[in-house]
Amino acid sequence: MASQLIPAPDNLSPKISPFWHRIFPANIDIALKTILGVWAAYIVANMLRATLWSPQSHNHSLEYYIITAVISITVTWFLYRLLVWGGKHLTLAVLILTVPTIFLALTTVYVTNSILAYPASILDYISASHNIAHDEALSFFFDAAFANYLILLGWGGLYLAMANNRNSQIALVHSRNLERLTRGSEMRALRYQISPHFLFNALNSVSCLIIDKQNGSAERLIDLIADYMRSVLYFNGDDIITVEQEMAQQIRYLEIEQVRFPSRLKFEVHIDDDVRDWKIPSLILQPLIENAVKHGVARTSVPVCITISAIKDHNRLKLTVTNSGRVSPIISMAKGTGTGLANIRERLETLYGPSAALLTGNGLEDVVIATILIPDEGQIFKDYSL
């Protein structure tokens, strides 16, 4: 199961040319949509107000609103650049939205009225266009500036919220993919702990057969080992395979062990049809099969049957390995069976967390039972869906 790392840079924004990138160095789509959207809404809202109100009580024209919007878009762009520069720090962002924004709002109203009033003075224009006394014109000027300040302040808050949300999404995706890559690496490392151990035992068996001058059996064993290792190490590079594929690998392994113990080792495999395509970690059964051979077959002179089964039990996959005999936890740990079981538990924990389990113990009919419980395959990395 290959894990691809999603790059940390902002790959959620559209690709733009270097020219536009210099003008909008960050979050160009958010900046453009919010700037144009806010001031388009300003024009629409005021034109609706002009239409609904009588001309006597509302003297601003479409020209006034268009000039105001154009100037305000430019001023908002300056505010955007300030926020890009200092918006990573909350205190500095609040300071920018407080002090510089006041002067930007005053600048917007001053430039707009200067254009419309030319060549008259601003206060004379305001007094004449709004039918108010000359001494009230200055108060009207600051009221208009305060209204623009609130719009700029609202835009700044909206932009910061959307930009920070995007940054959080990028960081979350990057973090989750790093964790996924780490988990995948841990799983492969745990999986590859198994192969050298098996290969050592298998080559030791070949050596014993050669010493006993059983060359035919040794040659057959080498062929089986090569086939098994090819399947294990080059099975599409997958760490997650189906139950049916895992069982096929274990059958190859048991066929190898049957060459060592032709009269003592028998095995049976049972798979429910509805779990054949269930996805599980590759070689998850290998340590259990090895333990069954090492402590069930190799240490006795009577025939031993190893049974492997895979069934569905209450929406969970139940993998069971049984063999004749009894096991003592203290003795078994002393004889070295703890590493393989720990390997299984670590792999299950890495992939499924607490949703999976490994249970071992003695059965009622003089058998040793090892059971792996795996949740529905949809649980695999389900916390990475965004």
Rank of each mutant, 00 (worst) to 15 (best):
E186N: 12
A117Q: 07
R183I: 15
V259A: 03
V206L: 02
T34M: 03
F142Y: 15
H295Y: 14
N215E: 06
L97C: 15
I271C: 10
I241A: 07
I374D: 07
R252V: 07
Y118P: 01
L285F: 05
V269E: 11
N113K: 05
W53E: 13
R166L: 06
Q250E: 14
V269P: 05
T76N: 09
Q286K: 02
H89P: 04
T360Y: 04
I225D: 01
I256E: 00
V109Y: 00
G37F: 04
Y64R: 01
G184N: 15
Y80L: 00
I240H: 11
L265S: 04
L32D: 04
G184C: 08
L285W: 06
V99P: 14
E63S: 06
Y118S: 07
Y149N: 01
N165S: 14
Q250F: 02
A93E: 15
T320Q: 15
V275S: 08
A41W: 03
Y253D: 04
P287Y: 04
S328A: 11
G154R: 04
L97Y: 15
D376I: 08
Y253V: 01
H89T: 09
E257D: 03
A40M: 11
P287H: 03
E349C: 14
I6S: 12
S207P: 02
I71G: 00
S385T: 12
L48I: 11
R299A: 11
L79S: 13
N46M: 06
R345C: 12
A147D: 07
L181K: 14
Y192C: 03
L160E: 10
I210S: 01
V99A: 15
D273H: 14
N46G: 05
R345L: 15
G87A: 09
L265P: 03
V293R: 00
A357F: 10
R316V: 03
I284T: 08
L153W: 11
P354S: 15
E290C: 02
S3G: 10
P196L: 04
H58R: 15
G87M: 07
L224C: 01
D124I: 07
G86P: 06
V232Q: 02
L36N: 08
L32C: 10
D277A: 15
I66H: 00
G361E: 15
K382I: 11
A8I: 13
F141M: 07
A310C: 11
I115H: 13
Y42G: 10
I222W: 01
V44M: 12
L224D: 03
D135K: 10
I240R: 12
N343D: 15
L172G: 13
I380N: 10
G184H: 14
I6K: 10
I28N: 04
G154K: 07
K266S: 07
A41Q: 03
P119I: 04
R276E: 13
K294L: 01
L158H: 02
G86H: 10
T34G: 02
Y384A: 02
L52T: 05
Q4R: 11
C208I: 09
L319S: 09
V44S: 09
A145N: 09
I132M: 13
G325Y: 13
S54K: 14
P287D: 08
I380W: 07
S207T: 02
E377A: 13
L209W: 00
H197A: 14
L203N: 00
